[in-house]
Write a protein that binds this DNA or RNA. Structure first.
Lengths: 208, 208
DNA sequence: TGTGTAAGTAAGTGACTACTTGCATCTCTG
DNA sequence: CAGAGATGCAAGTAGTCACTTACTTACACA
């Protein structure tokens, strides 16, 4: 691996563990297996290095796309939700650090908001299309519905390790459950069959 | 104000702004209008002081209670949601800092999880009662529904100032909108009678 | 008046921090 | 082989941090 890339990866890792203040140049250099001075020669300053590491990280973030026109809402939305929650869980440390430090370092804001912004945009478009195509029998605001699904997923990804008893079990089904409950609110029929099939209004996926 | 209380309040304020590492004893002492040495004589160490300040803070946190037996779900849940979101917004700085540092300082965990734990418990009980009383026509898991409502509110309180365009407008109605959408998912009849779909219903006025 | 307690002042300690300088070493390329 | 650029090493700078020591002041109470 390139020295430069090793340093960037190390910086991201150390930042995820210790935040900005805790990311000493010594720690980053040790993690990268590189002399501390190399950091300064390559990036100029600690701030520039971490800035660069964050940009590098957010640029490489990808997750599932939603189709332009809904076909099987339950499956499409569940796939998306699971991909989204997985991304948030993998990055949970770094997200928590960034959120905690955003008031002191507003320059980080663009990196922190990039992913959720794109996600919200995609989801809103999808929900609007759902509505326009008459696949939802209930009235709803796409933005509110999108904020609810994303918020549930976000809170789960951030909070479950701290208080597992507050979130639905098992962890692996949580995104699916949030998605189903949201579709229930929108009055979207249970999509286990073909999309154009039945007209029933209730979905009882939670019978226990 | 007592010197001790002034120091505790100052510590909480400085922590909310700068986090643990950024909460230097000098900053806290200045904010409290007290000599730096007084901190150490009163609390022994910086860590003990901040620990004490956090305990002091969480103990004084109160928000709206849900009734044991639901009467007017929309109003009761909306009141609760609004009180909860208001609490989270007021404490958003301190919550973000605590979340960001919880991996480095697990001893803070109990303070961070105390409020949401209590909230989740209350909400789950309420939703279970709703179900037991047959006030919800749809099937649902109380824990999933509770996690969704709390998650939406939490994400809104944490994220709106960073990306206002992602959340429903206006800010003051957001908690109400999340609550309504959740009730829609549970199949709880709309108390205000302005929903376009589904059975509209009788008066909701019941309490003073 | 004497005593105990909480607070302030002054000075300093050792550890850590970002960052710099000077010089030696290595590797790649022409 | 020669030169250039990247890297390492040793040492150091100026600053901050939590925390300590030794001494002084202010005040309450008996």
């Amino acid at each position: 691996m390139n020295h430069r890339d090793a340093i960037l990866a190390a910086a991201a890792g150390v930042f995820a563990k210790h935040g900005f203040r805790g990311s000493t140049t010594r720690r980053i250099a040790d993690a990268a297996g590189v002399n501390e001075i190399t950091l300064f020669r390559q990036f100029g300053s600690k701030q520039a290095l971490i800035h660069e590491a964050m940009r590098h990280l957010t640029q490489s973030a990808v997750f599932a796309l939603l189709p332009d026109t809904p076909v099987n809402p339950e499956r499409e939305l569940t796939d998306w939700s699971e991909s989204f929650i997985q991304h948030l869980r993998l990055q949970s440390s770094i997200i928590r650090k960034t959120m905690g430090e955003i008031e002191e370092r507003p320059d980080m804001c663009e990196f922190a908001t990039d992913v959720p912004r794109r996600a919200s945009n995609d989801l809103c478009h999808y929900l609007t299309a759902l509505k326009r195509q008459g696949m939802a029998t209930e009235e709803f605001e796409p933005k509110t519905a999108a904020a609810m699904l994303m918020g549930s997923i976000f809170a789960d990804a951030m909070g479950r390790d701290m208080m597992p008893d507050v979130f639905p079990q098992p962890e692996t089904k949580a995104a699916h459950k949030y998605t189903q409950l949201l579709l229930q609110a929108l009055g979207v029929e249970n999509g286990s069959g073909k999309a154009t099939s039945k007209q029933t209004k209730r979905s009882k996926q939670f019978s226990a």
